[in-house]
Amino acid sequence: MFFRFGAALVLVILIALLGIAIEKRNLALRRSISLQDYRREQLLEQRARLRLETEQLGAPGRLLDEVEAGRLPLEVAEEAESSSVAR
């Protein structure tokens, strides 16, 4: 009788512990997802800023005068392009 009672008690405790473990794991995963969402947002923002800066630096309006005046060494750029293509 005592053995059966003890076994039932152990079973209940085990189920409770398992529930707690699952809950902890669930919380940890949710925290991790939340953190990844935050990191994703940060990276998207960083990407937007970097692309903005790149486009500002390479804007035709900024480079056109330089190109037409021959102040930008386009040949070098073309060589680099062709070598990268060849590779």
Partner: peptide
């Protein structure tokens, strides 16, 4: 594909 308008925070 040149960027004409974008959004930052």
């Amino acid at each position: 594909g040149r960027l004409l308008a974008t959004t930052t925070r």
